[in-house]
Simulated scan of single mutants.
Amino acid sequence: MRPNMIKNAHDLILDMEKNFSDINNKSENKGKVFQDFLDEVFKDSHLDAKTKALIGVALSVQKQCKWCITYSVNLALKNGATKEEIHEAGWVAVALGGFSAYTYMQILAKSLNDLTK
């Protein structure tokens, strides 16, 4: 997947929000239950929210999920992570995941570029 083939990160996030809302409405609010779970997991506790979001970035690159990468980059930025911290989290995934994870760094880079404009 070439970086210019990836939808603008802002648009991807808006699409996810709309689609999740539609799915939730058709699924007796099961999506809300999941979102409540995510909110609970990602709040400050033994690990702060920024650290958890950076873990999410690394796992998203490792899992090779463009939606997850964009969501996690956005969450990390909202929780005060710097571009450098986000890149470094991505490189942790590459260190463990090899070339296939490396190819998803282009999505991380594009998401960062789009979301920090």
Rank of each mutant, 00 (worst) to 15 (best):
M1P: 01
R2G: 12
R2K: 15
P3A: 09
P3W: 07
P3K: 06
P3E: 03
N4R: 08
M5N: 08
I6W: 11
K7A: 12
K7S: 05
K7W: 13
N8D: 15
A9V: 04
L14R: 15
M16T: 11
E17H: 13
K18V: 08
K18E: 06
K18Y: 05
F20A: 10
S21I: 00
S21W: 06
S21H: 11
I23Y: 15
N24L: 01
N24Q: 09
K26N: 14
K26T: 10
K26F: 13
S27C: 10
E28D: 12
K30M: 14
G31K: 14
V33M: 14
F34K: 07
F34Q: 06
F34V: 13
D36F: 01
L38W: 10
D39A: 15
D39S: 15
E40A: 15
V41A: 11
V41L: 12
F42H: 13
F42N: 10
K43F: 05
D44M: 09
S45I: 00
L47Q: 08
L47M: 12
L47S: 01
D48F: 14
K50Q: 09
T51I: 11
K52I: 04
A53D: 11
A53K: 00
L54F: 03
L54A: 09
L54G: 05
V57C: 04
A58Q: 02
A58H: 03
L59A: 11
V61C: 07
K63D: 00
K63N: 12
C65E: 05
C65K: 10
C65Y: 09
K66R: 08
W67V: 08
I69V: 09
I69D: 06
Y71C: 03
S72D: 01
V73D: 05
V73F: 01
L75I: 03
L75F: 02
A76R: 11
L77W: 02
L77A: 02
L77S: 02
K78F: 02
A81M: 11
K83A: 13
K83V: 07
E84N: 15
E85Y: 01
E85K: 10
I86C: 05
I86L: 04
I86R: 10
I86F: 00
E88T: 12
A89Y: 03
G90Y: 02
W91D: 05
A93E: 08
V94L: 06
V94C: 07
V94N: 05
A95M: 12
A95Y: 11
L96E: 00
L96R: 07
G97M: 04
G97F: 07
G98R: 07
S100T: 13
A101G: 04
A101Q: 06
A101Y: 04
Y102V: 08
T103R: 07
T103D: 09
Y104V: 09
L108T: 12
A109Q: 10
A109T: 15
K110S: 02
S111K: 09
L112V: 11
N113W: 08
